[in-house]
C-alpha cells in the first residue's frame, strides 16, 4: 500500500476504530457512498466492516485506511477519477 502513503493526503482521524470512521463520514459529508470490503481505491483494497462509507467533498474522497498495528485512519485525498467511479456505482 505504498502508493497512498506517497500521495498528498490529509488525515482526518488517526489510530481510531472502523466504526468511528464510518460515523464521521456519515455525519460530516452529504455525498456518501457505501462499498464492500475489498473495493479498490487508488492502488489499495479497502479493509473494513461492511458497509464501508466513503465521503465525497468537492473533488476529494474521504475513506478509511487500516493498518494492522495502528488501527484505522480516515484520509482525504483529491481524485476526480475515484469520485467518478463511485458515482457510476462501481463496488456498491
Amino acid at each position: 500500500m505504498g502508493c497512498i502513503e506517497q500521495m498528498k493526503y490529509e488525515v482526518l482521524l488517526k489510530n481510531t476504530s472502523f466504526k468511528e470512521c464510518r460515523e464521521y463520514v456519515t455525519k460530516n459529508f452529504k455525498e456518501v457512498y457505501q462499498v464492500k470490503p475489498g473495493y479498490r481505491m487508488f492502488d489499495v483494497y479497502l479493509i473494513g466492516v461492511p458497509p464501508i462509507s466513503i465521503g465525497v467533498d468537492g473533488d476529494e474522497v474521504i475513506f478509511p485506511y487500516t493498518k494492522p498495528c495502528y488501527g484505522t485512519f480516515l484520509l482525504r485525498i483529491r481524485s476526480e477519477e475515484e469520485i467518478e467511479l463511485l458515482r457510476k456505482g462501481k463496488g456498491l
Binding site: S17, F18, K19, K36, P37, G38, Y45, L46, I47, G48, V49, P50, T66, K67, P68, C69, Y70, G71, T72
Partner: peptide
Amino acid sequence: RNDAGISYLSTLSSI
C-alpha cells in the same frame, strides 16, 4: 487482537 483485526476478519468474510 484489536479493532483493525476485526476489520481484516470482516474483509476476509467478504472476499
